[in-house]
Nucleic acid binder design. Structure first.
Length: 274
DNA sequence: CAAAGAACCTGGCGGC
DNA sequence: TGCCGCCAGGTTCTTT
């Protein structure tokens, strides 16, 4: 599923081909993608505008337009963006929108489960995230102290807190499992129960695993592909996620699968004591 | 306010 | 072979 490293991979790729290009055509095939905005109006509003830059906020992809507005894309669970230098060439089965550019290139959004969204964020919108998107885990504001402040006093399982985008932006099920394993922390430990050394280990592990995800071009477990339709390689180096029953790479005990915050959760009972 | 659970959606899979 | 029910998960909404 697209988490921060997968979105960052897509962002970096699009940053190499979209800036400077003008949108010459747009069609929204699935009204749900842009609801409650009318699909035809949404598409028409894009035509004629030029892409300025590509940014990312948590799991949101921001396509900056020349007038300062942002086209905000969220891939949710199965969303994909496919770039073609010529006519659309992606798998058309789950196609939800197509954007054509002046140089003949096309950007297609497909989404099997139809949870993904697109929206137009007007320039100068004050506090566009409205408290729903927390600190960037790879940014300078995400310190061990900051993480400790976010977890302190909380009784919810630390994994549930890591998945809460209002606290830290961009961590999903895969990277939460991997970071907690690397830090040696059981996912069901109450967030506020972590000691200072544990918080520091977790802080370090979150950044390390997210960077590993980016270095590997994302994790293609289910449907994730990059903008050229290629798989990432992070799935090949996961240590606990999806490895139920396999020996722990550190201590050899079998990896367990449990359920935390309604999510499949993988851990080593030896390395991550309760 | 915090925490937990349901809802949204659809392809794939196990079971019968 | 075919049908049923369940599972996957990011986010939002509802309930406790």
């Amino acid at each position: 599923m697209p988490e921060l490293p997968e979105v960052e991979t897509v962002r970096a790729q699009l940053a190499g081909c979209l800036p400077g290009e003008t949108i010459t055509a747009a069609v929204v095939l699935d009204p749900r993608l842009v609801a409650p905005v009318d699909p035809a109006q949404f598409a028409a509003a894009l035509v004629g505008r030029t892409v300025r830059d590509l940014r990312r906020r948590g799991k949101f992809l921001l396509v900056g337009l020349d007038d300062g507005d942002d086209l905000v894309v969220h891939l949710r669970m199965t969303g994909r963006l496919h770039w073609s230098p010529g006519p659309p060439e992606g798998d058309g089965r789950f196609r939800r929108a197509v954007i054509g550019f002046g140089d003949g290139g096309h950007l297609e959004m497909s989404d099997q489960r139809r949870f993904g969204t697109m929206a137009l964020l007007p320039a100068g919108t004050p506090d566009p995230w409205h408290g729903r998107v927390g600190v960037e885990p790879l940014g300078p504001a995400f310190t061990a102290r900051r993480l400790g402040d976010l977890l302190s006093g909380r009784r919810a399982p630390v994994k549930a807190l890591l998945l809460d985008q209002r606290l830290v932006a961009g961590i999903g099920n895969i990277y939460a499992d991997e970071a907690l394993f690397q830090a040696g922390i059981h996912p069901e430990r109450p967030g506020g129960a972590l000691g200072g050394a544990e918080v520091r280990r977790l802080h370090r592990a979150i950044r390390d695993r997210l960077r590993a995800g980016i270095d590997n071009g994302g994790a293609s477990i289910d449907s994730y592909r990059d903008t050229l339709g290629r798989r990432g390689s992070m799935q090949d180096v996961l240590r606990v996620h999806l490895h139920a029953g396999d020996p722990c790479p550190r201590c050899g005990r079998p990896i367990e699968k449990i359920r935390v915050a309604q999510r499949g959760t993988y851990l080593c009972p030896g390395c991550q004591p309760r």
